[in-house]
Simulated scan of single mutants.
Amino acid sequence: MSDDAAGAVPPGFTEVYRAQQARFPMPEPGWQPVHTVYVPADRFSSGSVSEWRDHALSLVKAHLGGPEELAEIFAVPGRLAAAVHERVLRKLAHEPIEDLRVDFEDGYGVRPDEVEDGHVEQAVEAVTALHAAGALPRRWGPRVKSFADGDPGRSVRTLRGFVTGVVERAGELPAGFTVTFPKVLMEEYLGQFAGVLARLEAGLGVRLRFEMQVEAPQTLPFLRAELAEALGGRLAAAHFGVFDYTAALGLPPHEQRLDHPVCDHARHVMQTAFAGTGVELSDGSLATSPASDRAADVHVLWRRHAELVRHSLRHGFYQGWDMHPSHLVSRFATVYAFHLAHYDAYQERVSAWEEQRDAGGGLMDEPATIRTLAAALRRADAALGR
């Protein structure tokens, strides 16, 4: 073989390489909410964010004595307890909710059209009031009904009324908007919903993206990297739905939990499908609130929720759903402790690699490990507000 032939670019390589770059952009981690808070549409108002903040802070005041108690309840290393405690208090006071969904689906139920239309108008008023006050969470939007329920018209009507109403009242669609599309039992629903967004875009001159929910075993087979590309970049995230998923598999109620092995399998399929695509991943929720206002019951709830948040974090899911103000305390405490626990060690290893020196401890880091460490530091900085 001649030198020219040996060095020639194989036929078709350029096209395949371009397809690779489009399908797997491999974006660096940026800011991603650590949670999504769901509020049923009929209970959502301009005061919802402050109500969640006040409730969470009241629980801290009543049932969290200080750093030592925080370390015991949330299994936070003692050396981190004071820093985590201070961060939790500051977070709850200034940004208790990072991502907000006004729920028109399971948390809301089926209502007559005129009733749901009224709640859409109510939600629009609340969103525009929060925006005007500078209190709208950094990410926000509605969760509409599923096409799998057989009535896509209701889903589209709610979405159109919500988006157009906000634009008309606020004069713009505030930054951070996304819409949650639940119970995607058929792959075709994704393309149909993306088409709905495209038509809304044309009329409003805004860019709309959505997150799909993975709530059924039927969804897993069609999760793949090509989805994000095929949907024109409109697929922003995939969120796991624990209760519909475990119920569909026939698990008894006491086994319908985020740390069940069947949920681990679903999460790993989601990770494999969307790795390198830029599609964000979110875990599900704990559908439990404190059994009473007594300290013992609040602590039981906090411990269990912290266990589940740690489980998600260890599996590479850095976002989850919070369904009650009490969850904010355990969410932020666990997230901050997770990111702070290894921050200094990761930073030292990356610095040692960049300076071409031994990191110590018998470690022999590979380039892929360094990229992972650097990504973990960027993710930690985003979560910690650094």
Score class of each variant (00 low, 15 high):
Gly65Leu: 07
Val102Asn: 12
Pro67Met: 11
Ala82Arg: 08
Leu70Tyr: 13
Met26Gly: 04
Arg87Gln: 05
Arg111Lys: 15
Trp52His: 11
Ala41Asn: 04
Ser58Met: 12
Leu64Phe: 13
Gln32Ala: 14
Leu89Met: 10
His94Ile: 07
Glu69Ile: 11
Ser45His: 09
Glu51Ser: 11
Gly66Leu: 09
Lys61Cys: 08
Ile73Lys: 14
Ala82Pro: 02
Leu92Arg: 07
Ser46Pro: 01
Leu100Gly: 03
Asp106Ser: 06
Thr14Cys: 04
Met26Trp: 12
Glu98Thr: 06
Glu116Cys: 08
Trp31Thr: 13
Val60Cys: 15
Tyr108Ser: 08
Val37Phe: 06
Arg53Glu: 03
Pro33Met: 12
Arg87Asp: 13
Ala8Gly: 02
Thr14Trp: 01
Arg18Cys: 10
Gln21Cys: 03
Gln32Ile: 13
Arg101Ile: 05
Ala62Pro: 05
His35Lys: 05
Ala8Lys: 08
Pro40Glu: 07
Ala22Gly: 00
Arg23Ala: 03
Gln20Gly: 07
Glu72Pro: 03
Glu105His: 07
Val60Thr: 09
Pro33Cys: 02
Arg18Met: 01
Ile73Asn: 12
Leu92Asn: 02
Ala82Asp: 13
Leu100Gln: 04
Glu68Ile: 04
Ala22His: 07
Glu98Ser: 15
Arg90Asn: 10
Leu89Asp: 04
Pro27Ser: 10
Gln32Pro: 03
Trp31Pro: 06
Val16Ser: 01
Gly12Val: 07
Val34Leu: 06
Leu59Asp: 01
Pro96Trp: 00
Arg23Cys: 06
Ala83Cys: 04
Met26Ala: 13
Arg101Val: 10
Asp99Ile: 07
Tyr108Val: 06
His63Gly: 02
Asp42Val: 02
Ala71Val: 01
Arg90Lys: 14
Ser48Thr: 15
Val34Trp: 04
Glu98Gly: 08
Glu114Cys: 05
Glu95Leu: 08
Thr36Ala: 14
Arg18Thr: 02
Val16Leu: 11
Ala83His: 08
Met26Asp: 11
Val49His: 10
Gln20Ser: 12
Val76Gly: 11
Gly66Thr: 00
Val37Ala: 15
Arg79Asn: 03
Ala83Pro: 04
Glu105Met: 04
Ala19Glu: 12
Ala71His: 10
Glu15His: 00
Glu15Gln: 13
Glu114Thr: 09
Gly109Tyr: 04
Ala41Pro: 04
Arg18Ser: 01
Leu92Trp: 03
Val34Thr: 15
Ala22Val: 03
Ala56Ser: 13
Arg53Asn: 01
Arg43Met: 05
Pro40Trp: 15
Leu89Cys: 10
Glu105Pro: 14
Trp31Phe: 15
Val76Asp: 11
Ala56Val: 01
Asp103Gln: 06
Arg53Ile: 07
Ala19Thr: 05
Phe44Glu: 02
Arg23Gln: 15
Phe44Thr: 02
Val84Lys: 08
Val39Leu: 13
Arg43Ala: 13
Leu100Pro: 02
Ala83Tyr: 00
Arg87His: 11
Gly65Asn: 12
Ser45Trp: 01
Glu86Asn: 12
Glu86Val: 12
Trp52Phe: 11
Arg79Phe: 01
Gln20Cys: 06
Ser48Lys: 13
Pro67Trp: 00
Tyr17Asp: 14
Val60Glu: 06
Ala93Lys: 14
Pro27Val: 05
Glu98His: 04
Trp52Ala: 11
Lys91Val: 02
